[in-house]
């Protein structure tokens, strides 16, 4: 043994306890970080698309966009009539459904369901498919106006940019993630403002 050679001292039992405690704490911190990451990632990704709803959610009334749009050729704006005017596209009132369905579709279960709700004066609680958080103020009107002017297309052709090909969907599902990245990249492509206060206030 050379003098000055480094010889690790055997830790005293006191130090052992300290190290043990430290180890437990470190393990705890590690677990907390893992859980924290899981929390953030799951919160961030916790949207229908990622958590593998390959299909859209079940609606209280199985309204088929396929029948109405694809087969009957109805325009999006016929029912979502607010989309060209205001922030929200708006879901139609049951009264609007009844303009046709008081006469059409007598023997279909879903229509009977809708009629009975209408007659009882109860509203339909649709399950929301597309949703942005409270601190995001998305305005349908401005987007429809911009794209239909820019591309010279009908307002109802603009919808699919974000909502996908709804007319093919038996159950409506979300196809775009609708994360801020999507918004910003599209805003950049179209030289729309990327000022935070455009959407966040």
């Amino acid at each position: 043994m050379i003098p000055g050679d480094f010889q690790p001292q055997r830790p005293t039992s006191r130090q052992m306890v300290k190290l043990g405690v430290l180890g437990v704490v470190a393990l705890g911190v590690f677990v907390a970080i893992v859980l924290g990451l899981t929390f953030h990632i799951s919160a961030w990704l916790g949207q229908p698309v990622v958590f593998a709803r390959s299909e859209g959610p079940d609606q209280p009334i199985a309204f088929p966009h396929t029948t109405h749009v694809q087969e009957l050729g109805m325009d999006c704006t016929f029912c979502h009539r607010n989309v060209e005017k205001e922030a929200a596209a708006s879901v139609p009132a049951t009264g609007l459904c009844m303009t046709c369905h008081s006469a059409v579709g007598d023997d279909l279960d879903e229509i009977e369901k809708m009629r009975s709700l209408y007659e009882d004066g109860r509203s339909i609680h649709w399950v929301r498919v597309h949703r942005v958080p409270d601190h995001v103020h998305f305005v349908h009107e401005a987007h429809i106006r911009y794209f239909s002017e820019k591309d010279g297309i009908e307002p109802s052709q603009v919808c699919q940019t974000c909502h996908g090909d709804v007319k093919e969907m038996e159950k409506v599902k979300q196809v775009e993630t609708l994360k801020m990245g999507d918004c910003v990249s599209c805003h950049k492509e179209n030289s729309a403002p990327t000022d935070c206060a455009t959407c966040h206030y």
């Binding site: 205001e86 708006s90 879901v91 009132a93 049951t94 949703r131």
Partner: peptide
């Protein structure tokens, strides 16, 4: 996660 579809939509009930 719910949107209401009211029975009739008077002018002042239109969303937004």
């Amino acid at each position: 996660l719910l949107i209401d579809s009211p029975i009739e939509m008077p002018e002042d009930l239109v969303t937004g």
